[in-house]
Design a protein around this nucleic acid. Structure first.
Lengths: 356, 356
DNA sequence: CTGAAAGCGCTAACAT
DNA sequence: ATGTTAGCGCTTTCAG
């Protein structure tokens, strides 16, 4: 392989007998370059296969044309969709994406913050790890790097945050279960101290209270997440399966289960089926996430669809407007996009309606 | 917000009355700096909150300490796991990850190649888009940027490639179905001209041939992928559902279905169930991918587990060794990691065994 | 052991 | 319209 050094402005300049600077101006479409030379320069650049060096460019311009995305777990389908949307939208604006994974650990968070700071990204979208008091994040806005929180709020800092209205989503879902006839509903939630869990729990309990049903803390069960090799894996249906099994065996069987994510619903389905109970008839089930498989389970799963793409898209939009300094002095923007209940068979006690 | 310019070496130098360069040496742990001054410098750097600027560093060093990852679709769970593994391993080596999405289009590929080239990443892992003759990729190795193909081979170029042994995986799965009693097996595959599809098809047909069963091209059906808004979405079970429905209605019912990915299995399950057929008894089903839901379907899905994490990890290892120029003159490394058949209930005609 | 000088590739002043 | 100079932040000569 020939030692093919990158072609630089200097190469073009020399080859054409003009100054480096003229080449720069020609290529960046500044005026004050005659059309003739510009054409010659562009042609030569093309011929030589010139590719601008963003390092050098960023160094002098101070902008890297890069945004950072810090996420807990790319294998979580919700975050996967977020990544897709963000990459796409960011690319539309001309930004490259630097992806960092914190694996749900404060250490990972810290490292990510550090990396972002080093690179001097123009802005970052973050799903902060649990337990983070978030203090390491503070330095980024201080250094002029705008931050937008995704999905989870970071209570300490006054940051922009775009999430889901989990409270209303859970309220709607729980209310639906109650209207379908459930009297003793049990919520199975992830055992993480994060705002989505808290919000869903709140909405869930609100619906029960409103319906005059018992709404004690015992209606909510934390799924003991079996500590996996890495948290960078999707949720584990088995965890919910075991808990549901315990509940079923415990005798005090709820007539409906609501779960924090569709993967848990898989576990609940199995626990119920194995106990000879019919999902959607003996016991209703409602999920969260509207994973592609939800519509195809038997019975199909009633669940709450999350606006992942919208979150990603509007987060990039917001970030870009912050980066451009257009609303530097606005208050932090806390936005919660609506989630939508998708009613399917697992919550219809009577009808045997087939799903679309 | 105070105008907090980044702290630079110069700031530290001035504040301490030493030269910029001594600071640089102290901080990068070069020798030829007295322990005393080094300590003072490190302390001051700490105090001031110094963060090195990788742009400047890369500019002079020529290495960005960044690897690029080009992927067709982060929402595809297989690729999502790949991303997780690659980010993790790359981080272990100290590399940052630049994520690019080609959305299965040659244009996206071209753009990605261009971006990678601009940034001068140290190396890149790519899942090239279909139809790409791959010529735009050539320039990267030419510029000294090593490339490793993931999952799909790029026939044109002589690149390193780490994928899955889909042929053997499919062979094993098909053979298993035959041994379970299937005589007329039908393979449902994605309608993309990519090597994984070709390999699975080959393995599938080999198993049939070997068993003395009809192995004509009509045993393989292409799932007409409904053109979605964006290809950056997971597979659509509905596509397979419709095809399976057609097949069932066509009368010439196979006694087993094999599908190219577990999402298709969801569609097949529904088509069969709706036709009053019992999966795993009247008709066997085998999938590919071992998605988390596979074990939790009813009946649980026999499928082929793919070594996503291993691919990601070893791809990074290989890339790093290439970047270090350790085996610059080796021939391209074409590696196919083994996939593993996971037998569950959907392929057991008789036993009603419960899954673990 | 430390400092001074040069340069990575590019752009933005300031000339001309 | 073009060239010259300077500098982004850092590292690597080369002197001292």
């Amino acid at each position: 392989m020939v030692d093919s050094r990158r072609v630089t402005l200097k190469d073009i300049a020399r080859s054409l007998g003009v100054s480096v600077n003229t080449v720069s101006r020609a290529l960046t479409d500044k005026d004050s370059v005659s059309e003739a030379t510009r054409a010659r320069i562009k042609a030569e650049a093309q011929r030589l296969g010139y590719v601008p060096n963003p390092m050098a460019r960023s160094l002098v311009l101070g902008s890297a044309m890069t945004i950072g995305l810090v996420i807990t777990n790319p294998s979580n389908p919700f975050y996967a969709r977020l990544i897709s949307a963000i990459e796409h939208r960011g690319r539309g604006y001309g930004y490259s994406l630097m992806l960092l994974v914190n694996e749900e650990s404060p250490d990972g968070d810290q490292t990510a913050a550090q990396t972002l700071l080093r690179w001097g990204v123009d802005g970052a979208l973050i799903v902060p790890a649990v337990q983070g008091d978030g203090e390491h994040w503070e330095r980024l806005p201080e250094s002029g790097i705008p931050l937008v929180c995704l999905n989870r709020d970071l209570p300490g800092l006054d940051l922009d945050c775009i999430g889901v209205d989990y409270e209303l989503g859970a309220y709607t879902a729980a209310r639906h279960l109650v209207e379908a006839g459930a009297r003793t509903v049990c919520l199975l939630e992830e055992d993480l101290p994060i705002s989505p869990v808290a919000d869903r729990t709140a909405g869930f309990l609100r619906a029960l209270t409103e319906a005059g049903l018992p709404a004690g803390a015992d209606r909510v069960r934390s799924v003991p997440t079996r500590r996996r090799a890495s948290l960078a894996l999707p949720w584990e249906p088995a965890d919910a399966y075991h808990l549901a099994q315990d509940i079923v065996r415990g005798g005090d069987l709820p007539d409906a289960f609501m779960v924090g994510n569709d993967y848990f619903a898989l576990g609940v389905y199995r626990a119920l089926t194995e106990a000879g109970l019919r999902v959607g008839e003996d016991v209703l089930v409602g999920g969260f996430g509207d994973h592609p498989f939800a519509a195809y389970l038997n019975p199909s799963l009633t669940t709450v669809a999350l606006p992942a793409a919208e979150i990603g898209t509007s987060a990039v939009d917001l970030l870009v407007s912050r980066m451009r300094g257009q609303d530097d002095h606005d208050r932090a923007d806390k936005r919660r996009l609506p989630a939508e209940l998708v009613v399917r068979t697992s919550s219809r006690r009577d009808e045997q309606a087939l799903v679309t």
